[in-house]
């Protein structure tokens, strides 16, 4: 070391410079570490926070959104707001809405996307019906009035994509034995996640909620072939010459008074 010093290879100035750089680099490394951990944590959005229509997937969104608030300003229904620091919401300054407070009214001209200067809200989304902000899920069948056999139907009626995103599926009311249940059923492909159903639910807490798509949907099993679809594709039975044997019925069925079979195997066959 001292030899190097004598030979002038390491001057005092250089030592000082290297020391300064090392100190600064250390400070920067601490900052970087903290921010790296922090930015991972904020990627976990609270499940009731919904991004505006056309929002890129969360990771890409956090890269593209500059937190300017222009989408918030151009939202005519004051649906959107910017996340405050420290309120446990999405990343500070990013736009979101809580459907139960103010749902998305699905404006046809989508002014929020129009306003976005960076494309964090995807400008290629032109039809609001194609938006995918989340998926409504009937989260509590035990409290849903329709499931209890009543005709509330409110979520179904308010749905902007009525009869496509939410259909009323009629099933027997097993409680009374003689009535129907009109079960509100969400068809995720048509649901935009606007949250009008969640807002409108008459219960103190909504039985139907918009959830992020990652939570609400699963990927279908691609390896699993559905026989009836394959049959329709092929145009004929997949295994030729399969014999359909008659279903066995109770031998003395005709002797039971008022017996009506639940289904008639003879009917409904192609």
């Amino acid at each position: 070391m001292s030899d190097l010093k004598k030979s002038g290879l390491i001057s005092v100035k250089r030592r000082q410079f290297l020391g300064d750089v090392a100190r600064i680099a250390c400070g920067c490394a601490v900052t970087a570490t903290f921010l790296t951990v922090y930015q991972v944590q904020v990627k976990a959005m609270p499940p009731d926070a919904i991004r505006p229509p056309g929002a890129l997937p969360e990771e890409d969104f956090l890269a593209a959104c500059i937190r300017c608030g222009l989408c918030v300003r151009d939202c005519p229904y004051d649906t959107l707001k910017l996340a405050d620091l420290g309120d446990g919401g999405p990343a500070t300054g990013t736009p979101y809405f809580i459907a139960r407070d103010v749902p998305c009214e699905m404006c046809e001209d989508i002014p929020c996307i129009e306003a976005c200067p960076t494309g964090a809200l995807d400008h290629s989304l032109k039809q609001i019906d194609k938006a995918d902000m989340g998926v409504a899920v009937l989260i509590d069948q035990e409290h849903c009035l329709n499931y209890l056999g009543l005709r509330c139907d409110v979520c179904y009626r308010v749905c902007p994509v009525i009869d496509e995103a939410i259909k009323l599926v009629m099933t027997p009311n097993t409680r009374t034995g003689s009535h129907a249940v009109f079960a509100p059923t969400v068809y995720a492909d048509a649901c935009t996640g606007c949250g009008k159903c969640e807002k409108a639910c008459v219960l103190p807490e909504p039985a139907i909620k918009v959830l992020p798509t990652r939570l609400a949907r699963v990927k279908g099993a691609e390896h699993y072939r559905l026989g009836w679809e394959e049959k329709a594709k092929a145009g004929n039975a997949l295994v030729p010459g399969l014999i359909d044997l008659p279903d066995r019925m109770p031998e003395d069925a005709s002797s039971v008074p008022d017996f009506k079979p639940l289904f008639n195997p003879g009917k409904g066959k192609p």
Binding site: T36, V42, L62
Partner: peptide
């Protein structure tokens, strides 16, 4: 490195 506007968080 993180693919997000990390500094904007603070």
């Amino acid at each position: 490195g993180t693919g997000s506007l990390a500094y904007e968080l603070v």
